[in-house]
Design a protein around this nucleic acid. Sequence first.
DNA 1: AATGAATGAGCCTTCATTCAT
DNA 2: GATGAATGAAGGCTCATTCAT
Lengths: 238, 238, 238, 238
Amino acid sequence: MKPTGNQNNDTKNRLLKSACEVFAKKGFRIATIADICKGAGTNIAAVNYHFRNKKTLYVEAWRQAFNRTIESHRPDGGVPADAPAERRLYGRIISILQRFSEMDSYVFEVMRKEMANPTGLLTEAMRKSIEPLQEELHSIVRELLGRKATEQQVLLCQRSIKAQCFDPMNWEQHRRRLEKAGIRFGLAAVKFPIETIAEHITRFSLAGIREIRRQIENGTDKADRLAGRKSRAMKVSK
Amino acid sequence: MKPTGNQNNDTKNRLLKSACEVFAKKGFRIATIADICKGAGTNIAAVNYHFRNKKTLYVEAWRQAFNRTIESHRPDGGVPADAPAERRLYGRIISILQRFSEMDSYVFEVMRKEMANPTGLLTEAMRKSIEPLQEELHSIVRELLGRKATEQQVLLCQRSIKAQCFDPMNWEQHRRRLEKAGIRFGLAAVKFPIETIAEHITRFSLAGIREIRRQIENGTDKADRLAGRKSRAMKVSK
Amino acid sequence: MKPTGNQNNDTKNRLLKSACEVFAKKGFRIATIADICKGAGTNIAAVNYHFRNKKTLYVEAWRQAFNRTIESHRPDGGVPADAPAERRLYGRIISILQRFSEMDSYVFEVMRKEMANPTGLLTEAMRKSIEPLQEELHSIVRELLGRKATEQQVLLCQRSIKAQCFDPMNWEQHRRRLEKAGIRFGLAAVKFPIETIAEHITRFSLAGIREIRRQIENGTDKADRLAGRKSRAMKVSK
Amino acid sequence: MKPTGNQNNDTKNRLLKSACEVFAKKGFRIATIADICKGAGTNIAAVNYHFRNKKTLYVEAWRQAFNRTIESHRPDGGVPADAPAERRLYGRIISILQRFSEMDSYVFEVMRKEMANPTGLLTEAMRKSIEPLQEELHSIVRELLGRKATEQQVLLCQRSIKAQCFDPMNWEQHRRRLEKAGIRFGLAAVKFPIETIAEHITRFSLAGIREIRRQIENGTDKADRLAGRKSRAMKVSK
DNA sequence: AATGAATGAGCCTTCATTCAT
DNA sequence: GATGAATGAAGGCTCATTCAT
């Protein structure tokens, strides 16, 4: 009933929304303004009017979606800062997974596309948004590994955890596509609830970290156990 | 200058090689035939002549590159089939990492691009090539977890391992880009040798698997430990 | 901030001023309404509101600027009508040059652009404004050449004078551009004061006119002297 | 009958020709590729194929047209280098006029447009092509004025001559347009044969130059005669 | 009186494909 | 066997104008 006043933000917001969807689905280069505008029910020139050009729309859409996602889920997963490190780790993990799983969170899909086909337009924005999360995770891992752990050991463990968290992001969409195509195989075929995954990752990783810590404190270098008396390349016979 | 005789195959091979590079760098849609032909030193029409169209070239190039990669590294990482499961796991892991790290192996980069922006053209080829690897990994994990483990538990552990293996693939390129741009932060800044990574992943994952197995055999369900008597959101203190 | 009352005329005048500048700089077609409105600090729609469309704004802006210029410099250059023809010629010449050199007189720049890329919109206005100047110059030259001169001879001399007067207009802007680009060569590099130029043109042209008059009165046709007994192409030596 | 071999250069040349016409008529910005291609009977994409883009086509078309013009008329107008300076001056003048008047010489029309709405694309090319002509003219004027003349005096005379030569270029097209519109007034209405104009300019200018020389040698400064006892600005009464 | 919003038309450019040797 | 030439289709962007307050 207030066609104009609302039309204003409406069109712009519809464009942002449609842009999120299309950019998430196709990535910057392949997405077309026409697609986005069709989704928003506007003229192609509207993008130019509201955002100057495709690039700006891309950045704006991502930023807005990112902020929405950030606000909807606390990065600590609801675990208080004075909880034991084990529980805080779980909080981090489930927080990441929750964000990924949001239906309207195209943020991570765009990030994946951006990493695969970088435009450079989100580099800074992504850096700023990811860095604090990584730092917090780093300090948790450091706490769990103890003072004696080298920085390299902390980083490797951090990576292992992060890899497991990001993994669903990488495969979920692929899984859906295969499913749609009627193809099912191995891992790609199964979908677990978020909590199940989060608990698995936490448990699995905590065990890994404790193992590393044990070695550190026992002085047993990892080379002893796996590659042992063999050459580095492990081309060894039994 | 003009080898005349087998110019035929030469041109075709140069096209395949150039196609690998360009497709790996840009993905199917963004790569242009002109780019590829420039890299191969041929006329644009050559693609249509030798491969009918861009799509066929894409599939052929990937298939060829995949086969080359397959041949150069055994999927067991040199570990004999009768070695203990722990060692075979290491073999699998380092085998994957080695393949990723090959300079001329554009296979995985194309896979990443394909997963980010699916053309559907490689779906079948990728499935066929990945499935056996996954099955082998699956049986190793199954062996390590023991008979009592549910299929879900096996799959979750398998995922954890796979995620850690694929992680370098996902970040290495990103890391290089950031480095080039002079940006360094956290994980993205560090590069470890393959063996170090492989050993870490193996050790970390074996600990995780043992932990899961212990619980299975002790009958302690994971829910007990992490989310335990608390609400799902884990807002409770112990 | 908002003068409220005569905002009306204010906005309109700011638009006219900005239009002058932008049209002078870019010409009708290349100048954009957006440019003009930015310069005037108004909304794009203001042009349509106040002037109906771009074309009308163009004509109005030029007409207004032309009138301003006309008023600021008398066409006789301050030389009384009963002065000798030589002095009146000087007056005309310096009057033209003065008008060209006015910083805020975009009139001639627009005329140049209009002559280069005619829109046809100013044809009539330009004709009306230039005609009287030409007629006056014509009568001066006629007076200097004497009764015996043919109309053709008068016109040729008039052209020679006018060409020299308009020359600075044609080159001054070009000169500035080259200077900005660091290029200097020949004529384009030098800038003389207006009076110097006016005096030169007057002296130079008076000599030319006297020469023509002498021939007329001596009955020596110009063909005698230059192309003389030679072929039209003048391939002959004397 | 040789559709291909000829088609090759044919299309390219047709594009160049059409580009000359359209660019001359409208200038770079306003001319459209579509226009040019319609004139050449080709597809729009042909421009991209043969010339990469509009800019390159612009430069190529002008350069080619310029060279054609240069070749068709010697810059000395057929007057031998050892002829007296007066005759060489005539040669220069008629050479310029001839070039202007060539029907297929769009060169100067493009130059005018370029000077009115500079793209900067021809700056260097124009400089290179004009410079030698100016230098030759300069040396002729210097010779006619004698050793005692200052550089400023030479430049002013050179300008006067050049202005008269370029004048037809500036007005001829305008005249045609007016004529077409049925408007006739003053100078713009008349068209003289080239030789008549050239002879007039030569005679007129030679008289001017001689006058300047006379003053130089008599030591009578120009201020004596025109501005005389009056202020520099010549605001004087009778 | 004035303006934010919206749009249709047009332009330059890119690109995969086809054609004619 | 191989290629230079040509093209239709589509994309991003610009801009004068119109609309609805």
